[in-house]
């Protein structure tokens, strides 16, 4: 009998696992944004003294991971699993970082929702009694994402106003059975929601219905209302997508406008020429492991609902005219 599952898609943890330490590395652009004081390391060169963007991305992922372990003050050998994913084909940033770290590795792909998917799965392993400490991490890099999904960097083209800017950075967190705050109390799995968006330059509007579906499922399964949380944060819908999500929630009878924001809006200021906001695995990851984690440690926020979203498309599916399947995972982070 699955005693920890409530409602149709939510897991309620018996002994809510803790986030005991985080590490964040961000690029120069993120390092001048509004959240700059919450990141552990700001690199001043997109290449990070490496020979390629891909190498730079995995170096950030490795540093963020090591920093998270260091900040959690547990010995490296105590890390029992490394759960990670990224945007690059065959999640090479994660696999190559796992090669360096040497811990047992679980590679996942949730696009920009990876951090929530990873923390949720990690919490399940811990609460299930399968581990005591594990590391969850993810990364993205503007330059690696551009060349894989879009155009060469030096090509002189214009981006539409709905476009989002891939965050350069990496975020990592150690999830543990130790009793410390903040804790992961609930995890709501998302379903794939596809509302027919084909424009890969408009991910926020494509992902908004997925975020809404998971949020409503979370509220129904847990019996909570939006006011229960100090903050509801979606992971990278950005300005247009956030508007849409708020609208759709209102239509379904949930008013979230008082305590709702989005990682893609938080990470840049509006003078940074990022069009509608930030995106990429590192967007939700650095905001969560940097800003949210530190605010929760200081008890500025005590109940946060993180709803990280991902657009699960590929360049091939886009070119073949397919619509974009989207997902969202909700993670309830609380100081108990």
């Amino acid at each position: 009998m699955a005693d920890r599952k409530i409602g149709s898609q939510t897991i309620k943890f018996n002994k809510p696992p803790s986030i005991i330490g985080t590490g964040t590395v961000v690029g120069p652009k993120e390092g001048i944004g509004p959240l700059k004081d919450y990141f552990d390391l700001i690199i001043n060169d997109d290449l990070y003294s490496e020979k390629s963007w891909e190498k730079a991305e995995r170096k950030m992922l490795k540093e963020a991971s090591e920093m998270a372990i260091k900040n959690s003050k547990i010995p490296f050998a105590n890390i029992e699993y490394f759960i990670s994913g990224d945007l690059l084909n065959q999640i090479i940033s994660s696999a190559f970082t796992a090669r360096e770290l040497g811990s047992p590795f679980l590679g996942i792909y949730g696009a920009c929702s990876t951090i929530a998917e990873g923390m949720g799965l990690g919490a399940i392993l811990i609460d299930g009694g399968y581990a005591d400490n594990l590391l969850v991490a993810t990364s993205s890099h503007f330059c690696t994402a551009e060349r894989q999904f879009r155009f060469p960097l030096e090509l002189g083209n214009q981006r539409p106003p709905t476009a989002q800017w891939t965050v350069t950075g990496a975020g990592a967190a150690v999830v543990s059975s130790d009793i410390k705050n903040p804790r992961i109390t609930y995890f709501t799995f998302g379903k794939i929601i596809d509302m027919g968006e084909v424009d890969s330059n408009s991910m926020g509007t494509a992902m908004a219905p997925a975020a809404v579906d998971t949020m409503i499922r979370h509220f129904q399964d847990t019996g909570r209302t939006p006011d229960y949380y100090d903050l509801i944060v979606t992971g990278d819908l950005s300005s247009i997508g956030k508007d849409v999500a708020e609208d759709l929630m209102k239509q379904k009878g949930y008013d979230i406008s008082n305590n709702y924001t989005d990682c893609g809006i938080m990470i840049y200021n509006n003078k940074q020429d990022v069009h509608s906001g930030g995106s990429g695995c590192a967007c939700a990851a650095t905001v969560t492991c940097g800003y949210l984690f530190k605010q929760m440690l200081e008890k500025k926020y005590n109940r946060v609902l993180l709803v990280a979203t991902g657009a699960l498309l590929s360049t091939t599916s886009s070119q073949q005219g397919e619509t974009i399947p989207c997902i969202a995972y909700a993670l309830s982070l609380e100081n108990l």
């Binding site: 408009s202 247009i240 508007d243 849409v244």
Partner: peptide, 8 residues
């Protein structure tokens, strides 16, 4: 959505 999206 098309009404929501800002025009270039």
């Amino acid at each position: 959505i098309n009404k929501k999206k800002p025009k270039p």
